[in-house]
Design a protein around this nucleic acid. Structure first.
Lengths: 137, 137
DNA sequence: CTTGACCTTAGTGTGTACTCTAAGGTTTAT
DNA sequence: ATAAACCTTAGAGTACACACTAAGGTCAAG
């Protein structure tokens, strides 16, 4: 399968596929005589692995690690894989916590403000950001 | 106040201050004869506004908008300010939702895996990512 | 045999928020 | 007078995941 067909089957761009190849995530097994990339069913499976891993939040660097484990499963333990997963989950949890604080603060600000058409001279959002911190602590 | 002292009072780097100046977030009112930046109390207040806005999740671009409103409050309405705040809050909410899906999927994966020292040949995390999607839909 | 749709590479641009470097000028203390 | 500690600028580098461009080669249809 040439890169264009492969890309459209997977719903990604050809740029993305070349990018993944450059970053050693997916290198098609074969090239045609003309130098065209020729993707196989195995490549399709690997690309689907990559896309699923992306869907659960892994970065490309992390997916690369997962692939290296997948290629030599017997040289790696379940422990290692679970660790990667849990580390990522905790990192995501941290980011959620941060964003939740943002969301809370923004809600407080928004609720304070009337939102009317009058000039912003006394806007509570601006004055809260100007004055001593009433948002944190 | 020279940039070094100003920076350490605020807990930011001098690089950050020069970066903010370049991006029109804070331009110190005065330069000394030697060309050194000379920060005033007004600059301090503005920088604290910026840091508070950052603390509630606004990006530098959004803070720049807020500052422009703040400088000419009577030319802008509460509505405008509240809109910015609510837009940001909704954007944050969307990102939280996405990360929450990631967290959920990662938890499911982690819970499936024994995490033991045995080789990863049958690791449920890897097989789940390989096989037809059991995570979404 | 030519047109159009595909493919190739290498390299640059995007957005975010800085951080670091090089090469040099200024100030302060000793 | 000189060393240390500060300051200046312009520009490059970082991370992430691509998107886009230029300049050219290949292939199938009409």
């Amino acid at each position: 399968m040439k890169i264009g067909e492969f890309a459209s089957q997977l719903g990604v761009s050809t740029d993305t596929l070349r990018y993944y190849e450059k970053h050693a995530l997916l290198t098609p097994s074969v090239r045609t005589q003309a130098g065209y990339r020729d993707y196989s069913q195995t490549d399709l499976k690997q690309m689907m692995f990559i896309l699923r891993a992306k869907n659960v939040g892994f970065s490309l660097a992390e997916i690369k690690e997962l692939l290296q484990i997948k290629f030599k499963k017997h040289q790696h333990s379940c422990h290692e894989v679970k660790n990667l997963t849990i580390q990522k989950r905790d990192l995501v949890a941290g980011r959620i916590a941060e964003l939740t604080r943002f969301h809370q603060s923004l809600s407080v600000l928004a609720d304070k403000c009337c939102g009317g058409q009058e000039p912003a001279d006394n806007c509570s959002i601006l004055t809260t950001l100007e004055d001593i911190d009433g948002l944190n602590q």
